[in-house]
Design a protein around this nucleic acid. Structure first.
Length: 478
DNA sequence: ATGTCC
């Protein structure tokens, strides 16, 4: 078993792996003692992967491991790596298989009292309306022309086809559109994506009706249009089979194009393409296209939610608070080497958390900071945060994205019973509907870490500050 | 995460 890299405590909740060997920068690890302990368990690769990331050509300042960091494909999940746009590289492992997996929050004009007694109807209608689980079928019917439009335009295409409002676009990271190139998306990925626009997927993806259970900062909550007991809807989903296939094929393509690089890596999963290479540009076009697809997917499900809320409660104003990416790389301006420069920021299982004043923050929120949503596990609290004042300095403007698992899927399936789990949650006022019992047990709340400690550290570091906590009311899953 | 192995 390989040794964990040596960690040095720099300040409260701040640790560093010093630069040694072929590392080009140090690694910053943000976390409390108990969170760091989990990264140092026997056989855990989180810190080793952090050190590997620090060897990437063109990486700037430091590799970042966030408080929810855990091991992933090549890079830690809960990691940030910013690279020079000329000397740097792009690595699919630093973005993730589920390109632009992310979370959006919708606000409704309802309070919890309006919904109590209607949970069963609500959860059934949501489940019938929004396709869940593996396989085909989306809320939106798309042909190949539609798909290409979505891949090129994201939410812009959705608005042109009356599936999104201007308000939706104004309240989405990157306005729901990056320069995607449909021609760079592998044909197999196109096929898989054709019938999945407006589908939830499986695993830890969910659509959850929640109520605002606690408000920590009333002023910022009000700026986000949120208050105590309000009913909101959280959607956690990504780019489905299309993003997965795109990632898989470009990893293969990079390995074939750069055998010498593949050979020299501390971990083959770290495979990358130098940004000056054509194939890096191809991947960027495909990755942005998959990101656009993920936004269209979450938007299509939003339309389904609106339909159900109108039918069930007669309300027509279900509005997007914001939509954040968890898995993407984007060009942004940051302070590096004592000056502001453009860098390509890889965020994998990490949420952009820009503070007040950044021009990327929508006008409506620019005076308070960017909304951040961190989902808890099914049946647990989720959090609304606000981009913190120190995020640019500490994490390239990022914070955590959620709680990781403590128990494997197979172990959770053995450990729990679907019917019993459903009854337990029901006793807590949480109505859950899943396409399969296995999904339910795999995602049992006790199979996940407590997200509270992650939030506490994010808040203490001032990279993402607490605004409100929500509790589940009704949840649909694959 | 994922038509959970081309």
């Amino acid at each position: 078993m390989s040794e964990h890299p040596q960690l040095e405590r720099v300040a409260a909740n701040v640790y560093e792996i010093a630069r040694t060997g072929d590392m080009r920068v140090p690694v910053r690890v943000y976390g409390s003692e108990p969170l760091i302990e989990e990264m140092r368990l026997e056989g855990d690769l989180t810190l080793t992967q952090g050190r590997n990331v620090a060897t990437l050509p063109g990486i700037q300042k430091f590799a970042v491991v966030l408080p929810d960091g855990h091991q992933g494909y090549g890079f830690p999940i809960g990691g940030v790596a910013a690279v020079d746009t000329e000397e740097g590289v792009i690595s699919p492992g630093g973005i993730g298989f589920d390109i632009n997996c992310g979370v959006r929050l919708l606000r409704t004009p309802l309070t919890y009292d309006d919904v109590v007694g209607h949970e069963q109807t609500l959860v059934e209608r949501l489940f019938e309306t929004i396709p869940c689980g593996l396989g085909k079928g989306g809320y939106l019917d798309t042909d190949m022309d539609d798909l290409r439009g979505i891949l090129a335009g994201g939410l812009e295409w959705m608005r042109e086809h009356e599936h999104a409002t201007t308000h939706d676009i104004d309240h989405c990271e990157e306005n729901g559109s990056l320069p995607g190139d449909p021609r760079k998306v592998p044909p197999e990925a196109l096929t898989r994506g054709l019938n999945q626009v407006g589908s939830l997927g499986s695993g830890n993806h969910f659509l959850e009706v929640q109520r605002v259970a606690e408000v920590y900062d009333r002023e910022i909550a009000a700026a986000f249009g949120l208050e105590q007991d309000q009913v909101v809807v959280m959607i956690h989903s990504g780019s489905r089979g299309l993003g997965h296939q795109t990632c898989t094929e470009y990893i293969r393509r990079f390995e074939r194009s750069f055998p010498a690089i593949a050979e020299s890596l501390p971990d083959r999963q770290l495979i990358y393409a130098p940004l000056r290479e054509q194939v890096a540009d191809d991947y960027k076009g495909a990755m942005y296209a998959a990101a656009n697809y993920a936004w269209a997917n979450r938007q299509a499900m939003t339309q389904g939610v609106r339909e159900v809320f109108e039918r069930t409660f007669g309300v027509t104003d279900v509005e997007l608070v914001y939509d954040v990416c968890h898995n993407v790389a984007k060009e942004e301006r940051h302070q590096v080497n004592g000056r502001e420069d453009e860098v390509l920021v890889h965020r994998k299982g990490a949420t952009r958390a820009f503070p007040a004043g950044r021009e990327e923050v929508p006008e409506a929120y620019r005076d308070v900071g960017q909304p951040v949503f961190i989902p808890g596990s099914m049946g647990a609290s989720s959090y609304v945060l606000c981009g913190g004042d120190r995020s640019l300095e500490l994490t390239f403007g990022s914070t955590a994205h959620g709680a990781g698992r403590v128990m494997s899927r197979t172990q959770a399936k053995r450990e729990y019973d679907a019917g019993e789990l459903q009854r337990t949650l029901r006793e807590q006022g949480v109505y859950v509907r899943a396409r399969s019992g296995a999904t339910l047990t795999e995602e049992a709340p006790s199979a996940y870490k407590d997200v509270d400690e992650v939030i506490r550290v994010s808040d203490a570091l001032d990279i993402g500050t607490k605004v409100a906590r929500t509790r589940p009311v009704a949840n649909i899953k694959g």
